[in-house]
Nucleic acid binder design. Structure first.
Lengths: 126, 126
DNA sequence: AGCAGAATGAAAACCGTTGTCGTTTTCGTG
DNA sequence: CACGAAAACGACAACGGTTTTCATTCTGCT
């Protein structure tokens, strides 16, 4: 139920970047954990269902996960190192709401992700 | 080099919804076109590279495509029928820009998708 | 027409993800 | 502490969307 599930959660808590399931699995194994890939997937799914982690699809369709605070928020993601900052934006919320209403849409949801290169990666660049 | 590539583009132009590659392939076959799935994929990729179509990853990781006008814009997508409206929002652009700068990020890009149920699907619902 | 190079597509390879199912662990109860 | 049911685990197989391979076909050029 939760010795390895807790371990997955801990691994996610180690840093603030979006990681793929396989990456997480590899890191855990490297750290000496005895856990199967299947369990990592299931744990991540459970955590996602419980809104304990955010899920993001990368451009190539791979799912990436990240521990996150509860509540509605968006992400500012470094496209090089994956580091993520949680941001919020009232402006976006109201804009999405208004635009949808104007077109007769109801039951509105939205996804917003901002990508860029973080200050550290800029300095570290060749 | 483009009898079937043109055909793919035409198929996309038929309506304003995001369609998966397989869906597009099936529709074309049903319409009497003699085209392979591989070619559909390749055509879509070429069109995407040329910024002739927008690509969107659905929650289950499947890629969906839609003909779109040039230039930066976002989408308001009906989660039932897939119908899409192109929208733009200066408010979002400036917000993304500001938030990124505040955190020292450069070379900023962003994705914004708004989902909802369109007026027609609301009426048609049970 | 003849030819080189690009495009096509059937089938196989890929790869992330999910299902299967026998084994192990956890936990409540006697 | 021992038992037994129920949940979790994990090696492996299966799945499904996408990409690659490679032999064949088509295009545009001379």
């Amino acid at each position: 139920m939760t010795r390895q599930r807790t371990a997955v959660q801990d691994e996610l808590a180690r840093d603030s970047a979006f990681r793929s399931a396989q990456e997480i699995h590899a890191r855990m194994r490297a750290a000496g954990h005895r856990i199967g890939l299947t369990t990592v997937y299931r744990s991540l799914q459970a955590l996602a269902d419980a809104d304990e982690v955010d899920v993001l699809r990368s451009d190539d369709g791979e799912a990436t996960y990240r521990a996150c605070s509860a509540g509605h928020h968006h992400h500012l993601v470094c496209r090089h190192c994956g580091t993520t900052v949680e941001v919020e934006g009232r402006a976006v919320e109201t804009w999405a709401e208004r635009v949808a209403r104007e077109h007769g849409f109801v039951d509105v949801a939205h996804t917003v992700e901002v990508f860029g290169t973080c200050a550290r990666c800029v300095r570290g660049a060749r």
